[in-house]
């Protein structure tokens, strides 16, 4: 058994995978260990560096795309899974492996890729910026958000915020890594605790008013809401605390509507425009 010690980055995995591949080490003989992990009980030899000097194996471009996304997944088995796919593609005679969607490894990797993409999408949706001030020199407004992503997606998700919020300064703080934009440069710093982020914004009151008013109590579909906005995100959404009371009140609100007496039709007011419509509809008038 070989133990591959890597940093939890695609570059580190790629370097190690190249070495292993060049030495012809099959996937079931490698134990992948992220830096910081405890050494395994199956402690065995590691390869002496530097890596063997051999040409990098050629893989389909789709594989590298997949690997880039998968590297952000939180499950540490991703490194082993990626190496197994790589081995099958380069040494197992299955170059077209990625186009066999019924293969168990391809299926799993596809699910993990989807999980990462979904989390990136949810980060784009559920980050909530709070205004912290204005840069005196540039006059630019400054915003800070706190988010707790499930996977290591800050670098994958950040370019979206750069394109969208170019005209303001912003930081997105997370426990693992933080992203910052100052109008010139997108850069990253290590994670921080939640207490480093602001805890409110004056606009949130209006946002909650909107959330409350746009809700239609006659169409309650709580499951549907939770499917798209799972509870794990609620703690960082300023509107989420309203949800239980909106649900609880909805029955009475609908009963009240149904009990309301129906209104008579009021006569049309004198208005030239309404008059012109009536003439269009009935040319004889």
């Amino acid at each position: 058994m070989h133990t591959a010690h890597i940093k939890p980055t695609l570059e580190s995995w790629r370097e190690e995978a190249r070495t292993l591949l060049a030495r012809g080490v099959p996937p079931d003989a490698v134990l992948w260990c992220q830096a910081g992990d405890e050494p395994s009980l199956f402690q065995a030899e590691s390869f002496p560096s530097p890596a063997v000097d051999s040409p990098a194996p050629r893989v389909p471009a789709a594989f590298m795309d997949l690997a880039r996304t998968l590297a952000a997944h939180a499950d540490e088995r991703r490194w082993g899974l990626l190496y197994r796919l790589l081995w099958r593609i380069t040494h197992g005679g299955e170059r077209a492996l990625l186009s066999v969607p019924t293969d168990a490894d391809v299926r799993l990797v596809e699910q993990w890729r989807k999980s990462v993409s979904r989390e990136i999408h949810k980060m784009h949706a559920f980050v909530r910026f709070r205004l912290t001030g204005r840069d005196e020199a540039t006059g630019r407004e400054q915003f800070v958000a706190w988010f707790e992503p499930e996977h290591r997606i800050v670098r994958l998700a950040a370019p979206f915020f750069e394109r969208r919020f170019a005209g303001m300064d912003w930081s997105i703080l997370t426990p693992e890594e933080c992203a910052h934009w100052d109008g010139e440069r997108l850069h990253f710093t290590p994670g921080v605790p939640r207490s480093a982020a602001p805890s409110e914004d004056a606009l949130e009151k209006l946002w909650r008013t909107y959330f409350k008013s746009i809700f239609n109590p006659a169409r309650l579909k709580v499951k549907m809401m939770q499917q798209e906005m799972p509870k794990k995100y609620w703690k960082n959404l300023p509107e989420a605390p309203l949800i239980p009371e909106l649900i609880a009140e909805s029955g009475d609100r609908v009963r009240n509507m149904l009990a309301t007496e129906e209104l008579e039709v009021k006569p049309a007011p004198q208005n030239a425009y309404l008059e012109s419509l009536r003439r269009k509809d009935n040319p004889e008038l």
């Binding site: 999408h121 784009h124 949706a125 559920f126 979206f160 394109r163 969208r164 959330f211 746009i214 809700f215 239609n216 109590p217 169409r219 309650l220 579909k221 709580v222 499951k223 549907m224 809401m225 798209e228 906005m229 959404l237 509107e239 949800i243 909106l246 649900i247 909805s250």
Partner: peptide
């Protein structure tokens, strides 16, 4: 910015 997939920034309890 626009042009990517649409984003739902929140969901009301009516599932919308």
């Amino acid at each position: 910015s626009t042009g990517g997939v649409g984003i739902c920034h929140s969901y009301a309890p009516d599932g919308r």
